[in-house]
Amino acid sequence: MLQQQMNQQFTSIFANASLLMKQKDDEIIMANIKSMELQQLLKKMEMENQELQKMAMHNELIVVSLRNTLSQIEDQENAHDICEDAGSCCQDSRSQSQSQSRDIGICRRCNSYISSVIFLPCRHLCSCYACEPFMSSCPVCNLPKKTSIPVFI
């Protein structure tokens, strides 16, 4: 009878230990699943971080370019020279002669309002805010407009 009680206790202890081990195995599986999810989320965040860094560098380059353009425009205004569309990357004789024949800051489309929009990538300041949406290319160099930036002078 003592032997039978001991066998029942061992069986009970073994069953409890087996149950606890199964619970711990389930917890380990859940922890591994959660770990994989977190690793995937970390990879996604790292990719987003890299994209944001690229965008920030691109925006910094645009800011530097615009500051240089603005500085050149201010220098030209201070010298009272005829505008040659400051900061332009397009330097052909046709656009130079056209720009010399126009006043500083007059819209190239309507010839009525002050130019207040810079075209990118050429960086010509040649359109008023009202005319810019209707222009698909720069009127100075005919380079296709990728984007434009309003300037407040």
Rank of each mutant, 00 (worst) to 15 (best):
N32Q: 13
M47K: 14
L19R: 12
C122E: 04
V140S: 02
D75H: 07
Q72D: 14
A130P: 02
E74W: 11
L38F: 05
L42A: 13
Q9W: 02
I62L: 15
Q40S: 04
L20R: 13
K34M: 04
C128E: 09
C107I: 01
C131N: 02
L70G: 04
F10G: 03
M135V: 08
K146W: 02
P121Q: 08
K145Y: 01
D81E: 15
H80P: 00
I33V: 11
L19K: 14
M55F: 03
S65W: 03
N49H: 13
S127T: 11
K22P: 01
I82V: 14
Q50C: 04
A86M: 01
V63A: 14
D85Q: 12
L42Y: 07
S71A: 09
D92R: 00
C110K: 04
I118F: 03
Q50S: 08
S101Q: 13
C128N: 06
S112R: 13
Q91W: 03
E48A: 06
Q50H: 11
A17F: 07
N78L: 14
H58E: 15
C141I: 02
L19Q: 14
I13R: 07
T11D: 12
C128Y: 03
C89D: 12
Q8W: 03
V64H: 10
S112M: 08
S101M: 05
V63T: 10
E77T: 05
C89I: 10
S136R: 11
A79Q: 13
N32L: 05
R109P: 00
S97T: 14
Q76I: 11
S115G: 06
K24R: 11
M47H: 12
N142G: 04
S95K: 00
C110Q: 04
N68A: 12
S35Q: 06
C83K: 02
Q53D: 03
I104M: 03
D26C: 10
Q53R: 08
I13L: 12
S35N: 09
Q98M: 15
D75Y: 10
C141D: 03
L20T: 13
Q40P: 00
T11A: 14
L38M: 11
K24W: 04
A17Q: 12
